[in-house]
Amino acid sequence: KELVLVLYDYQEKSPRELTVKKGDILTLLNSTNKDWWKIEVNGRQGFVPAAYLKKL
């Protein structure tokens, strides 16, 4: 499993997105899109802007 660090808080703006908090370490599911990465948070899957995340 690949992990990502959340660099900035992000509030979901659609049902396909997820809310994340700065400092969270989460599972990366897909990073093929350069702008939006798919991650998992508490069993939910969704997208967060790639600029808000850093691969560990």
Rank of each mutant, 00 (worst) to 15 (best):
R44G: 04
D9L: 02
L28K: 01
L18W: 03
W36P: 01
Q11S: 14
L53Q: 00
K22I: 04
N33A: 08
D9I: 01
Q45T: 14
S31F: 07
P15V: 11
E2P: 13
S14T: 12
V41P: 00
K13E: 08
V6P: 00
L5N: 02
L7Y: 02
V41G: 14
K54C: 14
K13M: 13
L28D: 00
R16C: 13
K34C: 09
K21C: 09
N30W: 09
S31E: 14
K55I: 14
K54T: 12
Y52L: 10
L18G: 03
V41M: 13
K55E: 06
Q45C: 09
S31H: 13
V6I: 04
W36Y: 11
A50T: 07
P15F: 10
Y10Q: 01
K13Q: 14
S14N: 13
Q11C: 10
T19R: 06
S14V: 05
N30I: 08
K34S: 12
Y8N: 10
S14I: 05
Y8C: 10
V41K: 15
K38A: 10
L26N: 05
V6S: 02
K54Y: 12
E17V: 04
L53E: 00
K22E: 08
L28Y: 02
G46R: 03
Y10M: 01
T19Q: 05
L18R: 04
L7A: 03
V41Q: 14
T32A: 13
L7H: 02
G23P: 01
E40S: 08
E40P: 00
K22D: 02
K22M: 08
L56H: 05
E40F: 06
Y8F: 15
N42Q: 11
L3E: 08
A51D: 09
L56F: 10
K34I: 11
D9H: 06
I25E: 03
E40W: 07
L28T: 01
I39F: 02
S31W: 10
T27V: 14
V41I: 12
R44T: 09
T32N: 12
L26S: 08
N30E: 14
N33P: 04
E12R: 14
N42W: 07
Y8W: 13
W37Y: 06
G43Y: 06
K22F: 05
V20Y: 04
Q11K: 14
L56G: 02
R44E: 11
K38I: 14
Y8K: 14
P49S: 03
K38E: 15
L26K: 02
A50N: 03
L5C: 07
K54I: 13
I25N: 02
K38D: 04
K1C: 10
Y8I: 10
R44W: 06
L29E: 03
T19W: 05
P49T: 01
G23Q: 02
W36I: 04
D35C: 10
K21A: 10
I39P: 00
K34H: 13
G23N: 06
N30R: 07
L56C: 09
V6L: 02
L5E: 09
D35F: 15
E40T: 07
L3C: 08
V4C: 09
L29T: 06
K38Y: 15
T32Q: 14
F47S: 03
A51T: 11
A50L: 02
D24E: 12
P49Y: 02
Q11D: 15
K13I: 09
K21V: 10
G43V: 03
D9C: 04
V4Y: 05
L26Y: 14
G43A: 06
T32G: 09
E2N: 13
K55R: 15
L26D: 01
T32V: 11
K54R: 13
K1G: 15
L7K: 05
G23M: 03
Q45K: 09
K13N: 11
T27Y: 11
E2S: 13
F47Q: 04
D9E: 05
R44C: 07
K34Q: 11
P15N: 15
K55F: 08
Y10W: 09
K13W: 05
T27W: 14
N33S: 12
L7G: 01
W37G: 00
D35P: 02
K38N: 08
T32L: 10
K21E: 06
W37S: 02
L28S: 02
L5R: 08
Q45G: 09
P49N: 03
Y52V: 12
L18F: 10
R16K: 12
N30M: 09
P15D: 14
Y52D: 02
E17D: 06
I25K: 05
S31L: 04
L29G: 02
Y52A: 11
V48C: 05
D35T: 12
N33E: 09
K1D: 11
D35Y: 15
K1E: 13
R44D: 06
S31K: 07
V48N: 00
E2I: 12
D35A: 13
V4D: 00
P15M: 09
Y8P: 00
L53N: 00
